[in-house]
Design a protein around this nucleic acid. Sequence first.
RNA 1: GGAGAGGUGGCUGAGUGGUCGAAAGCAGCGGUUUGCUAAACCGUCGUAGGGUCAUAAGCUCUACCGGGGGUUCGAAUCCCCCCCUCUCCGCCA
Length: 423
Amino acid sequence: MLDLAYVRNNLDAVAARLATRGASAGLEQFRELDRKRRAAITEAEQLKAQSNAQSQKIGQMKRQGLDTTAEQEAVRASKARVAALEEEQKAFEDGFRELLAGIPNLPHESVPVGKSEADNVEVRRVGEPRQFDFAPKAHWDLGPELGILDLERAAKITGARFALYWDMGAKLERALINFMLDVHTREHGYTEVLPPFMVNSRSLFGTGQLPKFQEDLFKCEGQDLWLIPTAEVPVTNIYAGETLEADALPVKLCAYTPCFRSEAGSYGRDVRGIIRVHQFQKVELVKFTRPEASYDELEKLTADAEDILRRLDLPFRTIVLSTGDMGFSSAKTYDIEVWLPGQNGYKEISSCSNYEAFQARRASIRFRGGKKAEYLHTLNGSGLAVGRTWVAIIENFQQRDGTVVIPAALRPYLNEEVIRPRK
RNA sequence: GGAGAGGUGGCUGAGUGGUCGAAAGCAGCGGUUUGCUAAACCGUCGUAGGGUCAUAAGCUCUACCGGGGGUUCGAAUCCCCCCCUCUCCGCCA
């Protein structure tokens, strides 16, 4: 959510910046709705002030033993009008809040202006894609051949876009989770948390998934409980409604969670394998920072995520998303893309964003800087998506004989150096 | 799931129909005193949204005592529903 006073007083500038991300709609109504809303508030409150004064007077008169029948009747008579005005006020307030809550974040000035992902800009490329002296296989062939990935039975148990891992497949997934958590907590200074995997709608509003992106989520029928699409939601909301001490910042948290996404509207994309599934595991990094530090912290957070790929000897590139490709709540986003031989290209494995005060305002997360509490900045990024890391390892380190060599950094977590076909 | 107790400002904790946005204490902030620290003393000290206005200060109004309804001229206080916490029982990993 944008700052109301800022939008009101810089409407043209806000409109211009939103236009760069193709989101100008709504701002024309803003001024008009804001005006109507304030008029309604003023009118309703004036009448309420009158009634309150009358009621106080009645109290005084009663103490003096005076008859107050006429005064009581007068207040009672104005009640209907107060109720009508309040209703009108509420309607304007609701409409206005909805409008404000539906406006996406303003892109940071360093973000390249563009219409789509075609305008994203590569900022660095690390590692060389391996030259195979045989035709490398995609994980959807290699996984089943090794007996570690079983998509057919997963479809039987649950449905399409779910995965069942066997033996070394399951162990590789678990090893990756432990490896990532250990690196981030021991070497990058993050505190590990294990949050609920279901959240309420208030939390989803706080991070920006609701009200606009309900169709991407799984909801428990008849209850205000939703499966988390990312750990960002429960972890960012840890401090919802709270005010942190300035010297506690930055707060750096990391969490392993499964993530559940309906993938509505992605029919036909990444249909093979486990690149895009309804349930995947992720280790997430979340930061709460002072406003002036958030862009430095975004660089560090991105580097922390990249470090996992470096340690696993996986080639990757980092791109900065253009204004046209950024998520709703983000002011700036880096995507990290890992090289996948099966796709002969780079594929997103992490998304690192600075939300500035956008989420903090929605979730009401502040810090006490000077005298007054002010909104802090929130950031998060995958560190990393575990399922796609699994794919990257299988595909990048496959051998001619169909085995997979485990990268050195991961061997202590697996007690194996090679994944061989399961008998 | 059953029975009971409770949810008030940063914290503790008063307040059962009007003058209560809310006593008191602690913490915080400003100051006096002090060689320094401590203590003492004085003052100040909630949030959000309107109006006035310079997007300031100040003044003023409205709302907020877990959330939502209701009764009443008037609700922290009375009634109803819901949520959360604690204790006991049952069940369960």
